[in-house]
Write a protein that binds this DNA or RNA. Structure first.
Length: 833
RNA sequence: GCCCCCGUGUCCCAACCGGCAGAGGAAGGCGCCUUAAAAGCGCUGUGGUGCGGGUUCGAAUCCCGCCGGGGGCACCA
């Protein structure tokens, strides 16, 4: 068959030929380049930039397809759309590959980025490639370093020594957010604790604001992200209470959420790994304490987290004074108290806290209930509602009495009393910890600090940025527990920017989450060479109108990016405090009910799917599969079916016999109504992210048009052209190639100088949305007995009358008495007998 | 253990504020077209919406209690 004949085949189009035909056209037209100076209203459609770990996979295909629906929709609606794409290209996989292959991580990174860009373009994602960048590019990471310096100057970056999460596999420390169930988020190895001096960002300064901001985001962000962030920030309210310690000047302050239970405090417990425990222990108890601490340190994080293991501890040999009773209580060290939460010390109230109950039971300490337990209560500690008792206990003298008060009232009274006596005060605590940002690995942005024996920590001056990575490759990069940078002697040894004397560079690199905390700003002015970004442009484009990405970043990237934005606002660089106004999380593409994995052998190769069904059919399948947030089981999907539908839609464009540009006014009204309704509803559906329903509606329109052509108004009717043009524009959101092909076949783009993607949203005549009759359902006792065609503005009385007059309704009522008639004009009447 | 989301036909999924349970697709069945098959075109849906209660004229939708699935937090005082 000649090529000419193939083009003339009336039933199917050649998927590959169509893809090859339009790509160069789009390359030439560049229809998705965002113009900063456009007079149109701006929309910023952002999707999480990928780590270039290889070629694109099904997961990328899904996000990009969903995201593209909105970006392309906004273009069609006449907005100027910023839809950028770049690469989060620092990180471990490149480094590990470089060690394996004895090369530089940049080699692997560059190759993967080139491959990914090529695939994105074939996939026809509407990204503006003039704005792309990679975070591992010195032109980018110099500004990552600059931001670090600014944070440092504001007191938001600091170094401290403390026990940190350590991944023995990756040989680096991890942020709290990167430890999942005691294991490394990246490699799954069991995380251990290590005492190290590390860099932190003071995200806790913003804890309250990060929490408050969620109230607003709740309306436009997915619930699960908002709740995950709320839980992670973990605000709690309670009190700080000072306990005097025998033979010690300073009291020990504890944090409690239940100051009302203070009369039940029968001991105090201090975190065994806190400095406080070390300070408090008596000489007599020191050997026992040190032995216990040694034992605790050997335990893994997973063991430590197990809530069902028995409570252990050691008596520190000192006593504390209960500030409300004057009673002497023992002070113990234990591993069930966390050193880095609250004050690292807790008042032990076994009657009201299950952990304290278990500890008291194990150690033979007394238990006093301070809340009356309900009838029939069979548990141990009781933390519920009830009147206070034993507060104080009979025979105990105290200036404070809480007996009989509810939990809330007792809390308030206890705090008032503590404040008055100056032995405590109301307090708020957050679960959120500061963000540990140093990493002992190579492929990241070096921390721009020099350590000088004279001047201490000195920032590398702005004009000396970027601090470039030394050229290391292969075995030089092997993780050894200290950064490979520290071993690059020539690089490490430098002079102090302040005094000029010999000094050393900080050998750690930054967490790659630092890179991705500000990339959305950079897209607004990606080519700036003398500043981090152009604030005016950032303020013009941001906050982003949409952010599409995976829910796995709920407490990582999505929290860090919010933090950065608040700091940038405080610095006066941006005029908003939240970076992403709306957010959409897509589900996973799974196969046969399970996550795709090499070990299961259930992986679906994107390239093979694209070869077999074409870009459009794969995109359509992903968009049509279901709500975007739901997982897609590829085994249940039918890309064949998608392609069949696209062929069917395409066929319509060949059947249209009218000329382009004609007026639709005289067209078949029934079909015109379907078109108008579809176009109108599609807009609302896209805006509420119900893309699968949009596709279903387009399928209906295609079916209706098919019927109109074959057995209705015929192919020459203007309404048919109107419908098919609408199909092409609507399909351009999901299946850009076939939409373009249809548009051309309709005679609309003979010179290939304009793409259907920018054709504009079809105009809808509002008159066509108004129905002249509505079907009214008449129920008798809730069962449908008749249907009436009525005017949409029919009055209640007229409708009631018409319904009761209907013979079928009369028959259904029979000789029963009509008790009430519920009328919901114009759609429903319910006769109650 | 606490918190959040979900459960509709064989499968994937629709159904605005409570108002006709079924839009769309897949699979299956039947027919037309064809010498035949594929493609195409058309026709084809008894599941009382996981279970049990409740509210209501009316419940997939709201409330309560279960069951099942997914997610978040978890020795955070």
């Amino acid at each position: 068959m000649s090529e000419h004949q193939q083009e003339q085949d009336p039933t199917t189009y050649d998927v590959t030929a169509v893809e090859e035909k339009w790509r160069p056209v789009w390359d030439r037209l560049q229809p998705f380049r965002a113009d900063d100076d456009s007079p149109r209203e701006k929309k910023y459609a952002l999707t999480m930039f990928p780590y270039p770990s290889g070629d694109l996979h099904m997961g990328h295909a899904e996000v990009f397809a969903l995201h593209d629906v909105v970006a392309r929709y906004w273009w069609q609606r006449g907005f100027e759309v910023l839809n950028p794409m770049g690469f989060d290209s620092f990180g471990l996989p490149a480094e590990n590959a470089a060690i394996r292959n004895d090369e530089h991580p940049a080699t692997y990174t560059k190759a993967n980025i080139a491959k990914s860009i090529e695939s994105c373009q074939k996939y026809a994602a509407s990204f503006d490639w003039t704005r792309t960048f990679n975070t591992s590019d010195p032109e980018y990471y110099r500004w990552t370093q600059w931001l670090f310096a600014k944070f440092y100057e504001r007191g938001l970056a600091y170094r401290k020594n403390s026990p940190v999460n350590w991944c023995p596999q990756d040989q680096t420390v991890l942020a709290n957010e990167q430890v999942v169930q005691g294991t490394c988020e990246r490699c799954g190895a069991e995380v251990t604790k290590k005492e190290l001096t590390q860099w932190y960002f003071k995200i806790t300064d913003y804890a309250q604001e990060l929490l408050d901001g969620l109230d607003e985001l709740e309306r436009t962000w997915p619930d699960r992200v908002v709740t995950a962030q709320r839980n992670w920030i973990g605000r709690s309210e309670g009190a700080h209470v000072d306990f005097a310690i025998q033979g010690r000047e300073e009291p020990v302050t504890v944090y409690t959420t239940r100051p009302d239970t203070i009369f039940g405090t029968t001991f105090m417990v201090v975190a065994v790994d806190a400095a406080l425990a070390e300070e408090l222990v008596t000489d007599a108890q020191r050997p026992a304490f040190e032995a216990y601490r040694e034992e605790v340190r050997k335990a893994s994080e997973i063991e430590r987290l197990a809530t069902d293991r028995p409570k252990t501890g050691v008596d520190l040999g000192v006593t504390a004074t209960n500030p409300v009773t004057g009673e002497q209580i023992p002070v113990w060290a234990t591993d069930y108290v966390l050193a880095d939460y609250g004050t690292g010390a807790v008042m032990g109230v076994p009657g009201g806290d299950q952990r304290d109950w278990e500890f008291a039971t194990a150690m033979g300490l007394p238990i006093v209930r301070t809340t009356e337990v309900p009838e029939g209560f069979e548990g141990e500690a009781y933390a519920g509602e009830g009147p206070a008792i034993n507060s104080p206990a009979p025979g105990v003298a105290s200036a404070l009495t809480l007996n009989g008060l509810s939990v809330a009232d007792a809390k308030r009274a206890a705090i008032d009393f503590l404040e008055e006596m100056k032995v405590g005060r109301g307090a708020v605590n957050f679960r959120l910890r500061d963000w540990l940002l140093s990493r002992q690995r190579y492929w990241g942005a070096p921390i721009p600090v020099v350590h000088c024996p004279v001047d201490g920590e000195v920032l590398v001056p702005e004009d000396q940025l970027p601090v470039l990575l030394p050229e290391l490759r292969g075995a030089d990069l092997k993780p050894q527990g200290t950064s490979p940078l520290a071993a690059a002697t020539e690089w490490v040894n430098t002079s102090c920017p302040t005094c000029g004397g010999p000094a050393t560079r900080d050998g750690d690199t930054m967490d790659t989450f630092v890179d991705s905390s500000w990339y959305m700003f950079r897209y607004c002015s990606p080519h700036e060479t003398d500043r981090v970004f152009d604030s005016a442009k950032v303020n013009a484009w941001m906050p982003t109108n949409l952010y599409v990405g995976g829910v796995e970043h709920a407490v990582l990237h999505l929290l860090y990016g919010r933090f950065f934005t608040k700091v940038l606002n405080d610095m006066g660089l941006v005029d908003f405090r939240e970076p992403w106004s709306a957010q959409l999380n897509q589900g996973f593409v799974i196969n046969q009910g399970k996550k795709m994995s090499k070990s299961l052998g259930n992986g679906v190769n994107l390239g093979e799917q694209l070869d077999a069904f074409g870009v459009d059919a794969v995109r359509l399948t992903l968009v049509f599969a279901g709500p975007p947030e739901d997982d897609i089981d590829w085994a249940n999907m039918s890309p064949e079916g998608s392609l069949k539908f696209l062929q069917r839609a395409w066929r319509l464009s060949g059947d249209v016999t009218s000329e382009p540009g004609l007026s639709f006014d005289t067209g078949d009204v029934a079909l015109r109504r379907v078109t108008a309704r579809t176009v109108h509803d599609a807009a609302e559906l896209v805006e509420s992210y119900r893309f699968n329903v949009v596709v279903a509606r387009v399928m209906e329109l295609v079916n209706a048009t098919r019927r109109a052509i074959d057995s209705g108004c015929g192919p020459a009717d203007p309404a048919v052209r109107e419908a098919v043009e609408a199909v092409a524009v609507l399909l351009s959101l999901v299946a850009p190639y076939v939409a373009e092909e249809m548009w051309e076949r309709l005679g609309n783009n003979p010179d290939h100088d304009r793409t259907v993607a920018r054709a504009g949203w079809p105009a809808v005549d509002p008159a066509l949305l108004v129905e002249d009759t509505v079907t009214c359902v008449v129920q008798v006792k809730g069962k449908v007995k008749a249907r009436l065609e009525v005017a949409p503005d029919v009055t209640e009385d007229a409708l009631r009358e018409a319904a009761l007059a209907d013979p079928d309704v009369q028959r259904a009522i029979g000789d029963a008495t009509v008790r009430t008639v519920i009328v919901r004009a114009p759609k429903l009447v319910n006769v109650v007998v």
